[in-house]
Design a binder for these strands. Structure first.
Length: 270
DNA sequence: CTCGGAGCCTGTCTGC
DNA sequence: TGCAGACAGGCTCCGA
């Protein structure tokens, strides 16, 4: 489910709700969420909430001089949701895996498929994903060109690799390649200067538009209030195989790359 | 390095 | 109606 825009949506909503708030506990309901050396949380305050790649990062204040501040990370993977509520209204669904309880209110972590992960890090550097964020100043055309250079991997699976560029998932990888008119099967290193420029522009454009629409919902994505996103109404190719291409009217085709669906228009994407 | 496949899980939809 | 199989937004491991 959540790619960069969905996580960004959650972070933006969570920020005003929990910043400055005092933590009471992290209640683990699903034993599969085995957290090694769970640190003391009671009494810590939320310093900030920010997106780290596809993860929701919550920076918690230190409790004493010896014990420094802490980063609590939620990775939502496929079906994770973070719902803000007062603890009384938290629904006791089977998919409720954990609750982050504050002095007032709590964040409920629902996750049907249970792929999601909760992690703790002692420093920001440790918590930060390896790949570059598409909205960071470091993500320039030249940087992208440098990363693509020499790679024989097809561009669509390349875009899903979080160790290079973080944030794109299966939906936005297809949408980005459609927007930049690049065939998803092209070897990454074969893109010319103009194509890299288009790709660089499209990555940011598509993600920005998706954020403006609070992400994409097929069935499971919900924001912190349990509402769905609306970007699914603006998808050009994802999930639309057999339908006409919005640019040329030709047929959109589905293919499988590395076990995952790719959608594209063979006429427009070269 | 890259690929395909399996695995982690549950739920939903399709076709027989 | 029942049941098997395919498929789903992420990511990691394995062997080739």
């Amino acid at each position: 489910m959540p790619e960069l825009p969905e996580v960004e949506t959650i972070v933006r909503q969570l920020k005003p709700l929990v910043t400055g708030r005092k933590l009471v506990s992290l209640v683990i309901l699903d034993p599969k969420l085995d957290i090694e050396n769970k640190p003391v949380l009671k009494g810590r305050k939320v310093i900030e909430v920010r997106r780290l790649g596809k993860q929701v990062g919550i920076h918690l204040s230190s409790l004493s001089r010896e014990k420094g501040s802490l980063w609590l990370l939620f990775h939502l993977r496929m079906t994770g949701r973070l719902i803000w509520n007062t603890c009384r209204t938290a629904q006791k669904k089977k998919s409720l895996r954990a609750k982050l309880v504050f002095d007032r209110g709590c964040i409920s972590f629902y996750d049907t498929r249970r792929f999601g992960v909760i992690d703790f890090f002692h420093t920001f550097a440790e918590a930060l994903p390896r790949g570059i964020d598409p909205f960071s100043p470091g993500f320039t055309r030249n940087r992208l060109a440098g990363m693509l250079d020499g790679s024989s991997q097809a561009i669509k699976p390349w875009l899903l690799r979080q160790d290079r560029l973080t944030g794109l998932g299966n939906i936005y990888a297809s949408e980005t390649l459609f927007d930049s008119c690049i065939d998803p099967r092209r070897p990454s290193g074969s893109l010319n200067v103009l194509e890299v420029r288009r790709l660089h522009t499209s990555v940011k454009k598509i993600l920005r538009r998706a954020i403006e629409n609070c992400g994409t919902t097929f069935d499971s994505f919900q924001d912190t209030r349990g509402k769905t996103g609306s970007f699914q109404n603006f998808l050009s190719v994802y999930g639309r195989d057999g339908e006409p291409c919005p640019k040329c009217g030709g047929q959109i085709v589905r293919l499988v790359q590395q076990g995952r669906s790719t959608f594209f228009c063979p006429r427009d994407q070269k």
